[in-house]
Amino acid sequence: MFKFKYDRSMPIRVCVYEDNQPLRDALSLLIQTTEAFELVGAFGDCHQVEQQIASLRPHVVLMDIDLPGVSGTEATLRIRRKFPATDILILTVFEDDDRVFEAIRSGATGYLLKKTPPVRILAAIEEVYEGGAPMSPNIARRVMHSMHRSTTPSDFDQLTPRESMILALLAAGNSYKMVAAEANISIDTARTHIKRIYEKLHVHSVAEAVAKYLKR
Rank of each mutant, 00 (worst) to 15 (best):
K82R: 07
T92G: 06
R80D: 00
L89W: 01
L67Q: 13
V70G: 14
S71L: 11
R78Q: 15
F83Q: 01
T76D: 02
D66G: 09
T73V: 10
D87Y: 00
D96T: 04
R78V: 09
I79K: 03
G69W: 10
I65D: 10
R78D: 15
L67W: 13
K82H: 04
A85C: 08
T92M: 07
I65P: 07
V70I: 15
I88S: 14
V93M: 06
A75K: 09
F83K: 01
R81I: 01
R80K: 10
A75C: 14
I65C: 10
D96R: 04
G69Y: 09
T92A: 08
R81Y: 02
D64F: 07
I65W: 06
I90G: 07
V70S: 13
I79C: 06
A85V: 09
L91S: 07
D96W: 03
S71P: 10
I88Q: 09
L77T: 13
A75L: 14
A85G: 08
P68F: 12
D66F: 03
A75F: 08
P84I: 00
V70Y: 11
L67A: 12
L67F: 12
L67G: 12
P84W: 02
F83P: 03
T76H: 02
I79F: 04
D66Y: 03
S71Q: 10
E74W: 03
L89P: 08
G72A: 12
A75H: 10
T73H: 08
P68Y: 15
D64M: 09
D66V: 10
E74H: 12
R78A: 14
I90L: 06
I90K: 01
K82G: 02
L91W: 05
I88G: 12
